[in-house]
Design a protein around this nucleic acid. Structure first.
Lengths: 136, 136
DNA sequence: TTGTACTGTAACAAATAAAATTACAGAATG
DNA sequence: CATTCTGTAATTTTATTTGTTACAGTACAA
């Protein structure tokens, strides 16, 4: 995944929840996270695709949450960010002449899906509102 | 973690379980996984530290399981391989002047530990023997 | 007792992936 | 119509992961 992206997205969304009612700029968000504003905008481009963020262009533009933070679970954020499976074996091309090598990818895939599901289930128990509440 | 390491370790251990009674060489193992034998030896160095593998040096040397595959859970393998937390935010240095930035690392850490625990718990339900059994 | 077939490691190189930067077009405001 | 934003592409830099080479040390077996 590049596991830092989940942290960044959650940080962004937490700030947006706190700054409800205001439009926050990528520069402001980047300042809190301490990364480049372009990275924030890229990350938000993804969050927008998933309906988690809305934006307004032009002068005095910026970002807000796409829906109330009570309706956003951390599982939803996780899934929005996640591209590749968490434990996935990458370009592995195990030896097909070997009994184990021939089948292992399918078994690993099944296992990883299960394991990741357990993690996502746990994340599903917390909403963005719950998380953001910790910051007062 | 470098998520491919878990796959490689599990692949190695599965082969060792199948080749019980024999000593398997790093070259043989590498042949099934289709990676470099030195990598296998490096990975095994770690598994040995955790008691999951034993080795014999010298001519006709090689590797065997350190204990019966029924007594090895996938959680144990996972923990042996894992260095950094799975979802961990790396060298993040969020802005301490920001209310959120100041505290977010501690909250993220707590969350990630919880989430990873759920995943490990799931992995704990399967033993290496269960996994290896699939290959017949 | 010496050649051979292994493991164990360190040091280095190459490939890949992630993060940061630069640059600029396009939108909305005032 | 100048200004201040977002959106996005292209590029560079940096970090991480993976692979390679090299060789010392160990055990066996002729």
């Amino acid at each position: 995944m590049s596991n830092g992206r989940f942290s960044i997205s959650l940080h962004i969304l937490t700030l947006l929840d706190q700054g409800k009612d205001e439009l926050l700029s990528s520069e402001y968000l980047a300042g809190s996270i301490n990364i480049n504003p372009v990275l924030v905008r890229k990350e938000i481009a993804n969050l927008k695709k998933h309906g988690l963020v809305e934006s307004k262009e032009g002068k005095a533009g910026g970002f807000t949450l796409g829906k109330p933070s009570r309706q956003i679970s951390l599982a939803e954020i996780y899934k929005a960010v996640q591209k590749a499976p968490l434990l996935g074996h990458q370009k592995n091309k195990p030896n097909p002449k070997c009994l184990v090598g021939k089948q292992i990818d399918q078994h690993l895939d099944a296992l990883f899906i299960d394991a990741e599901e357990a993690l996502v289930k746990r994340l599903g128990k917390t909403t963005l509102a719950d998380f953001a509440k910790k910051f007062y």
